[in-house]
């Protein structure tokens, strides 16, 4: 049920090809290629607007945030490292951080770039860069293979402002059950991605 759409907004089917998205992003980083940026915009901006709306932004605000995310993608393109994350994941983290800064009313100014990142994932050899590139496909497959009750709490985690309590209330299950489902989901996702526990 993770798959909700593959529509006319994405006629080239870029979504199916993480490598294609990475190549476009590479052209943005290396050559400031506006045509490549426009292609990425066509793919991501409507999904980003949808993401911000899901999290409670009004349409006009969601539109602004989608545009700001794409601007940030343009400015940060050189920081994208295909050995570390897939393009969808990287864009998601930019959108998430931007939303925190823009919408969070608690005004805690944290520095998300302050968390160190591994130059290469521990135990991952250089020739496994391709494996990391393909890991978005594996995450997708692993999410699709989760038992529905686990997939549901994962999905709701990403689309709720207060995940733990609200999800429990919405599903009519105790907080502890929400937490244990997320624990099981994490274990399955990590196993599917070959991440040691």
């Amino acid at each position: 049920m993770v798959e909700e759409s593959r529509t006319a907004a994405d006629p080239g089917g870029l979504a199916a090809q993480g490598g294609e998205l990475a190549a476009l992003l590479g052209r943005v980083a290396a050559a400031r290629d506006r045509a490549a940026f426009a292609a990425l915009f066509g793919h991501f901006a409507p999904r980003l607007k949808s993401y911000f709306q899901r999290l409670g932004a009004a349409p006009a605000q969601a539109e602004d945030l989608a545009q700001e995310t794409m601007l940030a993608l343009w400015h940060k393109a050189a920081l994208f490292d295909p050995a570390r994350a897939g393009v969808n994941t990287w864009v998601f983290t930019i959108a998430r951080n931007l939303r925190i800064d823009a919408l969070r009313r608690d005004r805690f100014l944290l520095d998300p770039d302050g968390i160190p990142e591994e130059l290469a994932a521990p135990g991952v050899a250089g020739d496994e860069r391709m494996a990391v590139m393909q890991s978005e496909d594996r995450v997708r497959a692993a999410l699709a293979s989760l038992p529905e009750e686990q997939a549901l709490v994962v999905r709701l985690s990403f689309f709720k402002e207060k995940p733990h309590q609200e999800i429990g209330r919405e599903l009519g299950i105790p907080l502890g059950t929400v937490k244990s489902r997320l624990r099981l989901a994490m274990a399955r996702l990590r196993a599917a991605l070959g991440e040691a526990q």
Partner: peptide
């Protein structure tokens, strides 16, 4: 950090699967 990379990946997959909202 490794667990968060996995969770970020789930976020990326969910973003990709969202129904696109038409832009202005």
């Amino acid at each position: 950090r490794a667990a968060v990379r996995v969770a970020d990946g789930a976020g990326g997959a969910l973003l990709e699967a969202l129904a696109p909202a038409p832009l202005a």
